[in-house]
Structure formats: C-alpha cells, structure tokens
Computed example of a mutant assay.
Amino acid sequence: MADIRIVKATPDTDFDAVSRVYYETWQFAYRHLLPESFLKQLTQDSWHPERRWKNTFLAMNGTTKIVGVCSFGPARMADYEGWGELYSLYVLPHFQRQRIGGQLIGQALKQLKRNYARQYVRVLNNNLAAQRFYQQFGFKKTELVLEDVTRFGTIRELMMIREGTG
C-alpha cells in the first residue's frame, strides 16, 4: 500500500494536477460505462476543481503527487435543499484498490455530517462497482434515476442516499 496523506485543498493547490486526476480516472473508470465519443471529447480543461477548493480533500503520495480527490458540499439539486452532496471521488488508476478512496470519502463525510444530517451521491446507473463501494459507507440505492440527454447519448445516474448515520 502506498504511503498516502489526506489533506485539505488550499488556494495554492496544483489544480492542474487535480484536473489530471479527474481526466485520467474518467478515461479509465468510465471506458466501458459511457459512450467512447463522450470520453474522447473530454480534456483536462473539462474540470475546474479550483471552484470548490474549500470543499475538497486530496490524497497525496509522499509529499507532492496528488493521486486522489474528493469534493463535497451543499446539495446542488433544488429538491434536496438542506442535504449534503458528495460531488466527486476519483483516484488515479494505479492507486485504486488501496483504500485511498475510503480515506477520502471518510474525511468528506466527516465534514458533511457537521452541517447535513442527510447526504447523497449520484452514481452512473451502470457503475455497479461504485454503487457497492458507496454502500460500504451507508449509502442506499433509491428508485430515482436521473437522465441527462447529451449529443453522445443518454447518461443515467442513480441517486444514493445516506441518512442519520453517525
């Protein structure tokens, strides 16, 4: 297992490196889950993690390399006002399956629970591995599937919720 530290992002964080984590992870993790044409149109500039630096944890390898990221905050969906949302959780492919994601989500949930008794995460409907992962942290599947119709096809996300978890 890699020597990993979980730290809060700061205004001085290397957000280009954070964007690389998003890009590389999307290309790897979603290659069989999203249309290839959708993934091909993404670039490292598709993400702007600097916008939510105050609500971001980073997994650092040693002291310098960012190998994972988790962002969170207030619900973005109007129907879930007063809830917390786990926005993203990504770990570079080479560092996956080393419990780094669990460390990141643990820190994020600790922060979210301070302000929100209930939290949710949106997961690709066909990403069964991610759904099982989130269930380990108390998230439960709902019947709600959100659809985003894009020029590349329809992307479906399952809503998973977590309530009253101490």
Rank of each mutant, 00 (worst) to 15 (best):
I6E: 03
V7N: 00
K8I: 02
K8Y: 00
T10G: 06
D14Y: 02
D16A: 09
V18S: 05
V21M: 05
V21C: 01
Y22M: 07
E24P: 01
T25A: 12
Y30N: 05
Y30C: 04
R31L: 01
E36C: 06
S37H: 09
S37R: 06
L39D: 04
L39I: 06
T43F: 00
D45G: 11
H48M: 03
P49K: 14
P49N: 12
P49Q: 13
E50I: 14
K54E: 09
F57S: 12
L58P: 10
A59N: 06
M60R: 09
M60P: 01
N61K: 15
N61Y: 04
G62F: 14
T64K: 11
K65E: 11
V67I: 13
G68H: 05
G68Q: 05
V69T: 15
S71G: 07
F72I: 08
A78Y: 00
Y80V: 01
Y80L: 10
W83P: 00
E85M: 09
L86T: 06
S88F: 10
S88V: 13
S88D: 14
L89E: 04
P93F: 04
H94R: 09
Q96L: 10
Q98L: 12
I100W: 03
Q107M: 10
L109Y: 00
L109P: 07
K110L: 09
R114F: 01
A117R: 13
R118W: 00
R118G: 03
V121L: 03
L124A: 14
N126E: 03
N126H: 07
N126Y: 00
N127T: 09
A129L: 13
R132E: 07
F133A: 10
Y134M: 02
E143H: 15
E143L: 14
E143N: 15
E143V: 15
V145P: 08
D148L: 05
V149C: 09
T150K: 11
F152I: 03
G153T: 12
T154R: 13
I155K: 06
I155Q: 13
I155F: 01
E157F: 02
E157C: 12
L158E: 06
M160D: 12
E163C: 07
G164I: 08
G164N: 15
G164V: 11
T165H: 06
T165E: 12
T165A: 06
T165Q: 12
